[in-house]
Design a protein around this nucleic acid. Structure first.
Lengths: 199, 199
DNA sequence: ACAAGAACTTTACACTGTGTAAAGTTGAAA
DNA sequence: TTTCAACTTTACACAGTGTAAAGTTCTTGT
């Protein structure tokens, strides 16, 4: 039988997660996480080589909990390209707020910390593949707007769906999550789906 | 006659600017700036209370040099709303790369430093007014797409034109500056300018 | 000519947070 | 009972920001 009390490593990851969710914005320090996990600060370094490493591992842990991959894969079952585009926006748009606290911490380091930058870029690269798949599906349906190449369209969709944009719209512009999802769908559809020709 | 050798304060601002432009990405420290300006590190604190303060003052200095306000005001002379929208995108889009180094430094602090956040928000608030004016001009022409309210449209345009988006498109997606400008114009026009009705 | 003061320099140090180092404790397995 | 892994405890190096205070230098007014 698998023990139900989590091992130290997992407890640290959970502590990091909780603190990040709680202390919105404020820096979460190694000492804070250690205290929350009921281990010594030094013990963190037995499991994670640096703070950056710990945060990166925490994102992986979170993805695991949330079942990120399965969810994103699900959007591939849609029939038409347009449906697929909408499904992807819905899925990703719903996922963002769940990972936002952590994303924010990583984003804050991205500009100065090489490793954090790399980790974040990789994640965004994965997300980009989802954008690409949706755009390709549109193109396959001959439903991609002639205004953009598939690559350009991917770039633009990727831009639209960035975490920073979600942050700006829901925080600075105080949009609700529903508004965000529906408006981005509308925006993406207007932009990428070719207008029906009454030829 | 006004002395042509700049006073210490100005020399510090110039040094900060140069270093930020040069050392793309890497942190610029107070000691670095002091060295470059040929003053002691302590002298910086005689002119600026904190590093954040210095960076903020540097942005103001830069705006001054670049004539930011005059340029942005110029876009207001356009006749139609659509022209105005394009003029604004052109002006702002051209301005971004000129302030990018500094913007980047401020953005990096924004997430943790209260004062930096405030200063940046204020700047972006100013930029938002330009977006709002362009959208209002469109609405006045009855040329605003019925898909969005003026406020929503402003929010979306503001989002589209964010520095982070410029960064993503030109750095990650390796778009040229020309491509950025022309694509964003096309994007904004498609999104906000009402389709001509053949009623 | 001299005092006063502004604008620095120099030296020293406090503080925060990350990360390293090494010796000591504890509990379980062999 | 020893041995080992997984910790704890204590100590410290290091970077970078910001404070403090005494010393220098140059200018200016009287």
């Amino acid at each position: 039988m698998t023990s139900n009390k989590p091992d130290t490593r997992t407890r640290i990851l959970q502590a990091a997660l909780e603190l990040l969710n709680l202390s919105q914005g404020k820096e979460v320090r190694m000492a804070d996480i250690a205290r929350k996990a009921n281990v010594s600060r030094q013990a963190l370094y037995l499991h994670f080589s640096t703070r950056t490493d710990l945060l990166i591992e925490t994102t992986l842990y979170l993805d695991d909990i949330k079942g990120a991959e399965e969810r994103l894969k699900a959007s591939r079952t849609a029939k038409t390209g347009a449906e697929r585009l909408n499904a992807f926006i819905e899925t990703w748009g719903t996922y963002i707020p769940e990972i936002y606290s952590l994303a924010r911490a990583l984003l804050a380091m991205k500009d100065t910390d090489e490793a954090a930058d790399k980790a974040w870029s990789q994640r965004m690269g994965d997300m980009r593949e989802g954008c690409e798949a949706a755009i390709n599906a549109l193109q396959h349906d001959k439903a991609l707007s002639p205004d953009y190449t598939a690559e350009q369209a991917t770039d633009i969709l990727w831009m639209m769906l960035s975490v920073r944009n979600w942050e700006q719209l829901t925080k600075d512009c105080t949009w609700t999550q529903e508004m965000y999802i529906s408006t981005l769908k509308s925006l993406a559809n207007n932009t990428f789906v070719a207008k029906e020709q009454t030829t």
